[in-house]
Nucleic acid binder design. Structure first.
Length: 835
DNA sequence: AAATTCGCATAGGGCC
DNA sequence: GGCCCTATGCGAA
């Protein structure tokens, strides 16, 4: 047996063990392929910081005094006031003594006594990670006494090269520590997906709170495992297999649960879909009810952990907007398993009735196994790189893998910043304090009612077909601004008299600190930006590197992109713990300055700008030399880089902003904003639109358009004809819209998808937030019907012709094609009057 | 629990 | 029925 003392493990997570009253570190042993735990070897305790004198603390604590483990004085750097500060550190025997007891934690008692507290709302295990400088996702050597020693990956070559281009020492240090984190890919960890079915009587909603009904099926799909476990009901003959899974029949529910729990214990990664809300708590509680140990499930208030692995609830992960938009490029709309699986994998759930008890056992097995299988496929999406990406986010954010997969981008960024603050021994400021010291006011007015400050500029497009168009674009505009002008809550509206004249935006009263050593956050964001643009993005495309390496660099650059994209927005988000309206306002103002300055320079140089949005300018008909000179001028005027992003053979602009079609030199088509691309419009319309795009793709020159126009007319005529003759399926004409809230909360108006959803509900079909409602427009009094309940002859064809018209007009107007003429000129004369 | 603002399409609802 | 504003959802950046 291997000596315990020299074990090597990848740090995955830290949690607080209430019964042991200490933090426990969770690691993955790549040799044995299993998770192991190291209880805190440092004697670390939860604490808060306060300005109450040490001798006062005991008195104020009252009954809680017994749970104080120690009071001491510490010195921190106050980054808001630019001075060192001496504070009292109050350590407790358990985290609940700090802030957990309702109304009576030390945090509240000290505040009620008129003192201020800091760092008292940080989760204990997060605090532990900062203090020990632990980096989730990295390998460690476990020393004989349990202490962890970071294994230094050998990435010095890259590190140095990244570091070389950076001149400030704080940034250099950040870059070097980040390069180390990002250099190596973590080892592969085997995973399994779990799904259970419960014998819920018809009409009842299964709940994990009350576990009255038996578990009748549980499926496991994963690496080297394909099983569906079934509880015997009646005497029906069961097949040995369903799909590619083995059927295992159990005589008792207790035995089945125990078997399944034992099986998932063998995997370091366990995927579920809504396992926090249902599968895991149901399994654990049902086990307890039947006198079976619920191990390895560890239930917390709103999530379920596993002692033997990392439980990743894919419902939580796929509901993360950053994951949805940037990792999966918005491919899925709603947040149900069926919707996401259909969109990502092209495979959905098996359709069955609502009454599980009436389902044949074999069909139940098949249904349950399919769910587990698609859950596993979603867990291993992106060719298996989804977990790599999570590991990367864990490394960047310093959050446990379980938290990364459950929390939003603002929590990742918060944690990343807190870690660096603690590392430098800076005091983590309170939100109220930032508002007080730096201001809560904004001075610009948003264009949209209800928004807090003015955002980006969108230039008025020049309608028409434009050949030979270059798109010039500021790479990572907002992060570049943050870095270049040193914008962060530390530096904006600083207390120094001498800085007050340093106001980079006319019309905004905010100023920026001129002291070289001020602030950390803008440097952190700047370094991440420089590393992505200057290193990882290039390396991901470097053909001299092995494929494996390139793939990992692509994971890194795409992960950094996700983080950078949100790095401005969080400062304008009220619930962000480092919320700072002046910062957010300053960043967009500098963005407007950047694009208007670039626009003015372009015009001065004789370039023809036909459109631009936020960080881009569309330049028609320039020479390479002109563009290079333009880049230089912008760099000189602003100190940030603009670069050639792409070239279009031609671009079609309508009069609408955020709507265009561009054909690149290689024939690929970029379609932005146009209705024909939106995923809520019916497939038939999208299909028609795609066909028209296909025709446009082939156009090489201005002359080519005449032939293309003829083909487009024919194509549209064909689809109009199909509509008029009802040659479509209901699915093809269904609109799909996500129900974003519970049905009863739509009180002000009743949108069409809500109407359709209510019809479904009255039939006993449950519609939860996140469900995609598919409905067709009909001639009944409501104007809509859910697809499931509608018949083809109810469809209101005229409404669809209208949709078709508005969809196509966005591009046809520019081409000089009149939709009405085409649509009216075919068959049934009666309809032509309509146009 | 949730990063931001800007822009567009559609329907709903109040009012004349 | 037309006008105007709001609610809602989806997309671009």
């Amino acid at each position: 047996m291997e000596g315990r003392g020299e074990r090597i493990g990848y740090l995955l997570s830290v949690y607080y063990d209430g019964s042991e009253r200490r933090a426990v570190i969770k690691l993955y042993d790549p040799e044995k392929g299993e998770i192991f735990h190291i209880p805190d070897p440092y004697g670390h305790r939860p604490y808060l910081l306060t300005d109450a004198p040490p001798e006062e603390v005991g008195k104020i604590a009252g009954k809680l005094a017994a749970r104080i483990a120690g009071v001491s004085t510490v010195e921190k750097w106050d980054a808001l006031r630019f001075k060192p500060v001496k504070l009292t550190k109050v350590e407790a025997k358990d985290p609940l003594a700090i802030g957990g007891e309702r109304g009576g934690g030390l945090r509240d008692l000290l505040q009620e006594a008129g003192y201020r507290v800091w760092e008292a709302r940080i989760k204990y295990y997060e605090c532990y990670i900062y203090d020990q400088g632990l980096k989730p996702g990295l390998p460690y050597r476990v020393l004989p006494d349990g202490r962890l020693e970071e294994l230094m990956p050998d990435g010095s070559d890259e590190r140095i090269r990244v570091v070389l281009t950076i001149d400030d020492s704080v940034r250099r240090e950040l870059a070097s520590s980040l390069a180390k984190i990002l250099h190596f890919r973590a080892p592969h960890m085997p995973g399994v997906a779990l799904d259970i079915e419960v014998a819920t009587p018809k009409g009842q909603i299964p709940s994990a709170k009350e576990v009255k009904h038996p578990i009748i099926a549980a499926a496991l799909a994963g690496e080297g495992i394909r099983e569906v476990h079934i509880l015997r009901r009646g005497s029906a003959q069961l097949p040995k297999c369903v799909e590619d899974a083995t059927v295992v029949v159990h005589e008792s529910e207790a035995e089945m649960i125990r078997t399944v729990l034992d099986k998932i214990s063998c995997f370091p990664i366990v995927f579920t879909f809504n396992g926090d809300g249902f599968d895991m708590p149901y399994l654990a509680r049902r086990a307890q009810e039947l006198g079976v140990s619920p191990k390895p499930i560890r239930l917390e208030r709103d999530r379920a952990l596993l002692d033997t692995g990392i439980h990743i609830d894919l419902y939580q992960l796929y509901s993360n907007r950053s994951i949805q938009v940037y990792v999966f490029s918005g491919k899925y709309l709603g947040y149900t398993l069926d919707e996401i699986a259909q969109a990502i994998l092209g495979v959905g759930k098996i359709e069955v009735g609502r009454d599980f008890t009436a389902l044949k056992t074999e069909d139940l097995a098949r249904y349950c196994y399919r769910d587990a299988k698609i859950t596993y496929m979603l867990g291993t999406a992106l060719g298996g790189r989804l977990v790599d990406l999570l590991m990367l986010f864990a490394r960047l954010s310093k959050l446990p893998l379980e938290d990364v997969s459950r929390q939003g981008i603002s929590q990742w960024i918060k944690n990343m910043i807190y870690f660096e603050y603690r590392r430098k021994n800076w005091l983590i400021p309170n939100k109220e304090e930032i508002m007080l010291e730096r201001g809560a006011e904004t001075y610009s007015r948003a264009l949209i009612k209800g928004k807090k400050y003015l955002g980006a500029i969108v230039l008025e497009p020049v309608p028409g077909i434009h050949f030979n168009v270059y798109v010039m674009d500021f790479a990572s505009l907002y992060p570049s601004i943050i870095s270049r002008w040193r914008v962060s809550f530390e530096t904006v509206n600083c207390p120094h008299e001498e800085c007050k004249s340093n106001r980079p935006v006319e019309g905004l009263p905010h100023w920026i600190c001129t002291h070289e050593d001020a602030g950390l956050v803008y440097r952190l964001i700047g370094v991440l930006r420089d590393m992505r643009v200057g290193w990882y993005k290039k390396k991901a495309k470097d053909p001299s590197l092995p494929k494996e390496r390139r793939e990992w660099y692509d994971v890194v650059q795409s992960g950094l992109k996700v983080l950078l994209n949100a790095s401005y927005g969080v400062f304008g988000y009220e619930n962000f713990p480092l919320y700072s309206p002046p910062v957010a306002e300053m960043i967009t103002a500098l963005g407007r300055k950047a694009i208007t300055t670039a626009l003015a320079l372009a015009r001065k140089m004789g370039l023809r700008v036909i459109y631009g949005d936020t960080d881009s300018l569309f330049v028609q008909g320039a020479t390479e030399d002109q563009l290079r000179a333009f880049e230089r001028e912008v760099e000189r005027a602003l100190g940030i880089d603009i670069e050639l992003e792409k070239h279009y053979r031609y671009v079609i602009l309508s009069k609408l902003k955020k709507n265009y079609l561009g054909v690149r030199d290689d024939g690929t088509v970029d379609i932005k904003g146009l209705m024909g691309k939106k995923r809520n419009v019916p497939d038939l319309v999208r299909e028609a639109f795609a066909d028209v795009i296909e025709i446009l793709k082939g156009v090489e020159s201005e002359e080519g358009f005449e032939q293309a126009k003829r083909m487009i007319r024919g194509k549209i005529r064909y689809y109009v004809e199909r509509l008029k003759n009802r040659e479509f399926t209901l699915d093809e004409v269904a609109f799909r819209m996500v129900l974003t809230r519970p049905l009863h909360t739509y009180v002000k108006t009743t949108p069409q998808h809500v109407k359709a959803a209510r019809m479904l509900e009255s039939r006993g079909i449950r519609v939860l937030p996140g469900t995609v409602i598919a409905y067709v427009k009909t001639k009944n009094k409501w104007g809509v019907k859910p697809v499931q309940l509608a018949k083809k002859d109810e469809v209101d064809v005229q409404k669809y012709l209208e949709i078709m018209r508005t969809t196509f007009e966005q591009i046809l107007d520019v081409l000089g094609i009149d939709f009405g003429e085409i649509a009216g000129g075919v068959s049934e004369g009666g309809l032509s009057a309509y146009f």
